[in-house]
Amino acid sequence: MHRPPPGQYVTLSTADEPYQAFVPAPLPPVPPLAWTPALRRRFDDALVALGRLDAITALLPNAALLLYSFVRKEAVLSSQIEGTQSSLADLLLFEIDEQPGVPLDDAHEVSRYVAALERGLALLRGGLPLCSRLLCEMHAVLLDHPRGRGKAPGEIRSSAVWIGGSRPGNAAFVPPPVDALPACIAAFERFLNDDPEATSPLLKAALAHVQFQTIHPFLDGNGRIGRLLIVLQLVADGVLREPLLYPSLFFKTHRSLYYELLNEVRLRGDWERWLDFFAEGVQASAAQALVTAHALLALVNADRDRIATLGRAASSALVVHQALQRQPLATSTALVKAAGLTAATVNKSLGHLSALGIVAELTQRQRGRVFSYRRYVELLNADLPPAAA
């Protein structure tokens, strides 16, 4: 179904030429969405997949350890969509003050995504609703790195931006002008908080993502904040207890279509194709996350059984093994702190884990050795495309 564009174009001009900026109409869409049986099934399948993923939070005793790694997968993937080249291993190395295989700025930028999500969750769980203040605080954290500090971190933009092209006059898309931002953001906040009417959580997440990207309230980082908003919305509305979903894997795999469908909403009001794509992405991402979760937990349980054969050494080795699930690339010094054991005990345990083939040393040096929970890292990376893909 094709509608008029869900908003209006306003004509503006620079010193050299006129151009048109798009101001989106408030959500929900008017006229109402056309819910075909196929689209309803797509949303039903997505909700079932999310329910299964969320269930592992309660059913599996160590599922919380997955959160550390899954949040970092989403950070890497969302940042790769924007052009950074950091892999998951690069991020994990950066977090333990080791040299990643990419420029430090790339790894630093991805690490701020993790910090921004943690900040948003803390504010949400502290009672702040999803609102511009929460998004601005996340944005301030996201852009707290050398490349971002000159791009007004934490502030709604006070100048025009455009997407594609060298200037507004030849851009592929120009978001709302500065004077339209307060009304756009106020209406967006009301929609997020079910004012004037409630919207089902998954539909709300789908619509809000497009609207946020269209408003483009910041000078930089809009794509990453917009993708963070998907998972935060699902947590805020109780669909997920923890942000275990990493939807950017689907968006990165289908990046051209992702951008095309966002644009089709703005140009032709084609919400239904976007909704179908979004729900398919959520279903696929949730199903993949569940497969990865079960594979990781099966590995952990099998390795725990092997460690139990160590006899008296098993107790300390299990504590180190537990620490490695939270941080699968770690220095021996970091493991001493995480495990609460002496350096001598940790090093003996690492020797046992290495002999069992569970842990591999990545460095050949006497001090500051880096160890990898090898198969755990391999499973985490199994569904990740190359950074440059």
Rank of each mutant, 00 (worst) to 15 (best):
P5A: 12
Y9A: 12
V10H: 09
E17K: 08
Y19V: 07
P24A: 14
P31W: 14
P32R: 08
D44I: 09
R52D: 10
L53A: 01
N62Y: 15
L66G: 00
A75P: 06
I81A: 09
S86W: 09
L93M: 03
D97T: 03
A107T: 04
A107C: 10
H108T: 10
R112V: 08
L121Q: 03
L121V: 04
R125A: 06
L128T: 10
A140R: 10
L143D: 02
D144F: 05
P146Q: 07
R149L: 00
G150Q: 02
I156H: 06
R157Y: 03
V161Y: 01
P177D: 03
V178I: 13
A183E: 15
A183S: 15
F188N: 06
F188T: 00
L192M: 09
S200T: 06
V210I: 10
V210M: 11
Q211P: 06
V235Y: 07
G238M: 03
P243C: 05
L245P: 03
Y246N: 01
P247E: 03
F250Y: 15
K252A: 13
H254N: 13
L262P: 01
R273Q: 00
Q283A: 15
A286W: 03
A286G: 02
A287G: 11
L299W: 15
V300M: 05
A302M: 15
R304C: 01
R306K: 15
R312V: 09
V320C: 02
H321M: 09
R326Q: 07
R326I: 04
E361R: 11
S372C: 06
L379K: 11
L384Y: 06
A387T: 03
A389C: 04
